[in-house]
Design a protein around this nucleic acid. Structure first.
Lengths: 137, 137
DNA sequence: AAGCACTTTAGAATCGTTCTAATATATTGA
DNA sequence: TCAATATATTAGAACGATTCTAAAGTGCTT
């Protein structure tokens, strides 16, 4: 059972046709052990240089937006010029290195007791994200 | 001692000349009891409709960027099309209502034990921000 | 009041992202 | 297998927030 086959299923199961472009993007995003943080431009460069595949910028945006809506990736809440995405969709948080623009994961278990004392009546909590900004000493 | 006088001092103390434009912007941002969350466009509208003052968009951006660098306001880490600023520069966090795009403060004391177990050698922590995304039920 | 530094301004430029509508590809059903 | 239909891709235009440019205006010092 090839990886391609898996991605094929992964796409079909959420109603997306497994096109060459989407399979290539899956390969970059999901064929790896570690969490992957990326911008659209990062992804575009990897597709070009590592996979030698040319996908139009519109398709890259379309695909990434689909994947986000389907829950395969998530957008990181962070104010930078570019939007960062994360292939790790589990509950976790980030260090953001302002010197290098690098993102590093940390897990719920790395924070003590993230319990809110305040609640908002009539609202439901969608997510809780912690962002720790750091700089090189 | 007028408010204008105070803003005059506030500006001079960080090396900014108290121009009409900057004083008008100070009035909108700082002449209020509550925390103020705003986008550039919010500010522009208030200047126009409430103060009946016309300030070029370039000046609004320049001033807000100066105020940010001087520590009089801060930018909120949040991925939305527009950048949000906050006149509350103390340690605190935000609820972001995705239904209404509204921001609501909550304080350090509203979160239990925000202590990190993980640390990054060779880095210094600049800020810790918690963002709780909510939606209307 | 003159001179200099700083500030404001309109409009152009930039850049990330989305839109458009024409072309191509995948899927379905006969 | 071969249309017919639905979905996807694409180049390039458009958009929108923000920054840049360089010319004109203002505030401050002497």
């Amino acid at each position: 059972m090839s990886i391609i086959r898996n991605f094929d299923k992964k796409l079909r199961s959420v109603g997306l046709r497994p096109t060459r472009q989407r399979l290539d993007i899956c390969e970059v995003l999901f064929d790896r052990k570690e969490t992957f943080h990326f911008t659209i431009d990062d992804l575009r460069k990897i597709l070009k240089t590592k996979l030698h595949t040319k996908i139009s910028i519109a398709t890259i945006y379309n695909t990434i937006n689909s994947f986000k809506h389907k829950g395969y990736i998530k957008e990181i809440s962070l104010n930078s010029e570019k939007t960062y995405f994360d292939t790790n969709v589990t509950n976790h948080h980030h260090f953001y290195n302002e010197t290098t623009n690098e993102l590093i994961d940390f897990h719920d278990s790395d924070v003590e007791q993230l319990k809110l004392r305040k609640n908002l009546p009539g609202k439901k909590i969608k997510s809780i994200e912690v962002l720790v900004k750091v700089a090189n000493k």
